[in-house]
Nucleic acid binder design. Structure first.
Length: 428
DNA sequence: GCGATCAGAT
DNA sequence: CACATCTGATCGC
């Protein structure tokens, strides 16, 4: 692992080309307006948003690449200096505006870096991305998969965003006299806001910088920075707390909606109403028509009133466990590496996937649904592991999975996200 | 004094 | 629980 060839979401000097999956700040740490380390490849939408985040960025370094097209790059081998060509294709990651995954092929085989991604099983965009990936792989397996393992744990189970969106709309519609605040980040969840606006025919307040983002994205003129025009406000998530909600309620009845992939199985709060939320009889057991024509339950049980004024809705821009599993099954990687390891309870993504092979699976758990227990085979070589228990507190530091050495990390915080891919970045 | 980096909070 | 972000302290020049 001498010199670097390319880096994804990682910005240290020494690579010949750099790739940005999306503009969330945990993926741009190390990037600045003074960038000069090399060419930076990103999607058209990401490029459009670039000036907002990096006003003085030298655009001569930016390379806009089209989703669904193969692009060829002539680089040189870090070890020998001889010419080495790689190809890559950006694929829609359906995470936030501009987000893509990158599929690379070169002397290192096929490497897929997902960035953050949502892999819903239905919907026009999802199906398109899936077919694009299948076509691009053309029967080949992925040698190294760098995976968004944010929710790579069977406890993370939530519906497609279309369903969560309807849940949010139900909550708003059933509180006609309340102001509504929704916690969002600097980028992402725009579709949720657009749908609220469309269905309930109201404008949505956003803070000034967010309005600029909406304008750059070319969204219709439904967003405003004038509070008098609407009772629905999308506010920065960090400004959203029990205290702020109570403060707002001192003046006007207000409810908060927190769209999040977290299951909220337990809360740091002591209050009642921890489990579930009852809507009016009329809206109970309703079914909604999804974009692919199927009907699904508008199951409000997954909505939780977590505190007097706050509702938690399972709207996530990351894949749930089930979707991650489907994705891994599709690309059949030789080696999987998690790209998210920020938490103190980080578990290698292969950990839970390897559970599928566990001989004592039947003895554990409650948290695995029957679907999850189906057999998955990678490269046709199923190897049993010695994993037991549910994972987090596992002491095992190393395991052999399909001939792949995997290790749990012991660090509490990871400094860098992203990866440098070198010439010989073959499976360990 | 300023940007980069890190810890901690939310 | 964690994500993505902010604030504020500390570091290096």
């Amino acid at each position: 692992m001498e010199g670097g060839m390319i880096s994804v979401d990682q910005w240290a000097k020494g690579s010949q080309a750099y790739f940005l999956t999306h503009l969330h700040s945990d993926h741009t740490r190390g990037l600045s307006s003074t960038w000069s380390n090399g060419p930076l490849f990103c999607s058209r939408t990401t490029a459009k948003l670039f000036p907002l985040k990096f006003p003085d960025f030298n655009f001569a370094f930016l390379r806009i690449v089209e989703i669904g097209s193969w692009h060829r790059l002539s680089l040189s081998s870090p070890s020998t200096g001889s010419p080495a060509s790689i190809q890559f294709m950006p694929i829609d990651a359906f995470h936030c505006p501009g987000a893509v995954m990158f599929l690379f092929r070169g002397v290192f085989g096929h490497v897929l870096y997902t960035g953050d991604f949502r892999w819903e099983e239905t919907g026009e965009r999802s199906v398109k991305a899936k077919n694009m990936l299948i076509d691009a792989l053309n029967g080949a397996n992925v040698d190294v998969l760098y995976l968004d393992n944010t929710y790579c744990n069977p406890v993370y189970c939530f519906p497609i965003r279309e369903v969560a969106t309807q849940q949010v709309i139900e909550i708003i519609a059933s509180h006609p006299e309340h102001d509504i605040v929704i916690g969002i980040d600097s980028l992402g969840k725009e579709d949720l806001l657009l749908e609220i606006s469309r269905c309930l025919k109201m404008k949505i307040w956003v803070w000034p910088e967010r309005l600029q983002t909406m304008h750059l994205l070319g969204y219709p003129d439904i967003f405003t920075t004038r509070t008098s025009l609407t009772r629905v406000r999308a506010v920065p998530r960090y400004s959203f707390s029990i205290n702020t909600l109570e403060g707002l309620n001192a003046t006007k009845p207000t409810i908060g909606i927190m769209p999040s992939g977290l299951p909220w199985v337990s809360k740091p709060f002591e209050g009642k109403n921890k489990k579930g939320f009852s809507l009016s009889v009329a809206s109970k057991n309703r079914r909604i028509l999804t974009s692919n024509g199927t009907r699904v339950d508008l199951n409000m049980r997954s909505v939780e009133k977590v505190q007097n004024h706050i509702f938690s809705v399972p709207y996530s821009d990351h894949s749930c466990y089930r979707e991650i599993k489907d994705f891994v099954w599709l690309v059949k990687p030789y080696n999987v590496k998690g790209i998210v390891s920020m938490s103190s309870c980080y578990v290698n993504p292969v950990y839970y996937l390897s559970h599928l092979f566990s001989s004592n699976r039947a003895s554990q758990s409650t948290c695995l649904d029957p679907e999850i227990c189906e057999e998955v085979e990678m490269k046709g070589k199923t190897k049993r592991t010695n994993f037991t228990g549910t994972g987090r507190k596992k002491r095992t530091t190393e395991a052999n999975f399909l001939g792949v050495r995997i290790r749990r990390v012991s660090i509490l915080r990871q400094i860098n996200r992203g990866v440098k891919i070198v010439e010989c970045d073959s499976p360990d």
